[in-house]
């Protein structure tokens, strides 16, 4: 794993012996969550949750509202500290001991459930701010994008279909365009893992289809974890689906396997899975 210099200088904090053994044997696994529990005022948002994600995998997480999907992303990205459990990125980064910006710089990008872009900056500037670079103050004082970075900016703009909007204020974009811009901002960070929370909420059917295309194209180069409610969308992209319910895994497998599971049907009352 390529860590930025300021992370490399620190003594790596190794996983526990037990976990280290599995980290070594489980080659190709990029994200481990084990026995993670989070409670808010006694309410267990995550309950002994374990999820493993492979390098290059495209994983869908589904589950009813309040199942803990966003909370799971909060834990991985350092926003919420769990009560118990462990979360490892790659073989060396203990997400529970790192700050959100350290985790982001190490290679985990995140799109929020509510699209969050810098509304007063242009589309282009949003991507520039997100771009992988030395993100300390001194570097930001003198940063001058290189030709390669300009090329990457143009590529991502093209990929997310916002080339005609490059000079437009992000606040003026449509809801769907903001979602894409945020995905573009993730890509600018060259992340190994993308966490994408409800990317097609509020999109038109055409936009949903193109988003599915985009995420499919990203898998392989990145590990992508998508939280989504839209079953047609999940069906279009999913290879492996994890069903979350009341903070723990209810079922895991292919879309067909999961849909055939009576417990899953019960949770969804049949209707949403139709």
């Amino acid at each position: 794993m390529r860590l930025p210099g300021w992370l490399q200088n620190r003594a790596p904090v190794g996983p526990s012996a037990d976990l280290a053994h599995r980290l070594e044997t489980g080659r190709g696994v990029v994200l481990y969550m084990e026995s993670v529990s989070v409670s808010f005022d006694g309410f267990k948002a995550l309950n002994d949750l374990s999820v493993y994600v492979d390098e290059g995998e495209l994983r869908c997480i589904i589950g009813p509202n309040g199942a803990g999907k966003s909370t799971m992303m909060d834990v991985i990205t350092g926003k919420t500290r769990p009560d118990t459990g462990s979360v490892w990125f790659g073989q060396t980064l203990d997400c529970l001991r790192r700050e959100p910006w350290e985790i982001a710089a190490a290679g985990i990008g995140r799109k929020f459930q509510k699209p969050t872009v810098f509304e007063q900056l242009s589309v282009f500037e949003n991507l520039e701010v997100a771009m992988q670079a030395d993100k300390r103050v001194r570097a930001s004082l003198f940063a001058q994008p290189t030709a390669a970075q300009h090329r990457q900016l143009d590529e991502i703009l093209h990929l997310i279909g916002l080339t005609p909007e490059r000079g437009r204020l992000a606040g003026l974009l449509s809801h769907g365009q903001k979602q894409w811009l945020e995905i573009g901002m993730l890509l600018m960070q060259n992340p190994r893992v993308l966490l994408v929370d409800e990317p097609v909420a509020g999109m038109t059917p055409g936009e949903v289809e193109r988003t599915a295309e985009l995420l499919n194209a990203l898998a392989g180069k990145h590990s992508v974890i998508v939280v989504e409610h839209d079953m047609a969308f999940v069906r279009a992209i999913a290879r492996k689906v994890t069903v979350l319910h009341q903070g723990s895994v209810l079922a895991e497998g292919s879309m067909d396997q999961v849909q055939a599971d009576p417990r899953v049907q019960e949770v969804y009352l049949g209707e949403a899975m139709a």
């Binding site: 990008g109 810098f118 900056l121 520039e128």
Partner: peptide, 24 residues
């Protein structure tokens, strides 16, 4: 300079800035 755009990001969406790798 780039820092000017980062400051505007800090003003308008601090958490977004944090999750793209800046220490606010």
């Amino acid at each position: 300079a780039k820092i000017g755009r980062i400051l505007i990001g800090l003003r308008d969406a601090e958490s977004r800035l944090m999750f793209v790798g800046y220490n606010p």
